[in-house]
C-alpha cells in the first residue's frame, strides 16, 4: 500500500530553497540571439556555441577573436560592455584562454574561449576595447606564457619582474628546493 496523497504544507520542500533559486545557469535566450547574430554578421567565421554549467560558451580560433568580440560589444542586442574575468587554462590539447563578459543592458553572461595552436601562443589584446583587460592580460601572460598582441605593457604583474617562468603551466613543478649559495655546487637560486 502506498500513500498517493501529496505532502502536507508543514513538511519541508523536497528540494532545498537555494537550488530552486539559483539563476546562474546558461541563458537560452542569449544562446539563440548569439547564434542568429553571429550567423548574420560573421557568416564565414568558424565558431562553436556550447554550454558550461553556468554560462553559454562561445569557442573561436585566435585569428577571428578580435572581430567577434567587437561584434559582441557593439551590437545592441548583445551589448557585452564589461570584461569581468579572464583565465588561462593549460589543457593537454593546448593553451586556452577563457574570457567572461557581462552585458548590463540584458543581464547576459557569456564565456568566450580561445584555443591557441601548440606552437603559437599569440592572442590579440582586448585592451583597446576594455580597459579592464590591462591587468588580466598581464596576469595570464606571466602565468601561462600567452603573448597578447597590442598590449602596451606586458611585463610581470604578480611575479618578480625579472622572473621568466610560467608557474600555472601543468609542466611547472609545485615546489622545488632552493640551491643555497656556498653550500651546494650548482648555481644558486631556483632552477625551474
Amino acid at each position: 500500500m502506498t500513500n498517493e496523497e501529496p505532502q502536507q504544507t508543514e513538511s519541508p520542500p523536497a528540494r532545498p530553497l537555494a537550488t530552486l533559486a539559483s539563476t546562474q545557469s546558461p541563458n537560452q535566450q542569449l544562446r539563440k540571439t548569439l547564434e542568429d547574430t553571429l550567423a548574420k554578421v560573421h557568416p564565414n567565421t568558424p565558431f562553436e556555441i556550447g554550454e558550461t554549467k553556468t554560462d553559454v560558451n562561445l569557442h573561436c580560433p585566435p585569428e577571428h577573436f578580435a572581430a567577434l568580440v567587437t561584434t559582441l560589444k557593439e551590437r545592441k542586442e548583445l551589448a557585452f560592455d564589461m570584461l569581468r574575468n579572464m583565465s588561462g587554462v593549460d589543457y593537454e590539447e593546448g593553451l586556452t584562454c577563457a574570457y567572461h563578459f557581462y552585458s548590463f543592458a540584458h543581464n547576459y553572461s557569456l564565456q568566450v574561449t580561445v584555443k591557441c595552436p601548440p606552437d603559437n601562443t599569440h592572442i590579440p589584446s582586448l585592451t583597446g576595447l576594455y580597459a579592464a583587460a590591462l591587468w588580466h592580460e598581464r596576469e595570464a601572460a606571466e602565468m601561462f606564457g600567452f603573448v597578447f598582441d597590442g598590449h602596451p605593457n606586458l611585463k610581470n604583474l604578480l611575479l618578480e619582474e625579472d622572473l621568466n617562468i610560467h608557474p600555472l603551466l601543468k609542466a611547472h613543478p609545485l615546489a622545488k628546493p632552493e640551491i643555497l649559495q656556498g653550500i651546494e655546487e650548482s648555481k644558486p637560486g631556483f632552477d625551474f
Binding site: A21, S22, T23, D81, Y130
Partner: peptide
Amino acid sequence: INWGLTGPMIRATGLKWDIRRAEPY
C-alpha cells in the same frame, strides 16, 4: 564598466547592480 569596477565602487556611480540580485545565488 570599462575599468571592470564592481561592488560598492560601481554602485557609487549610481548603477544599481548587485550580484545578490542580478544573478542570485
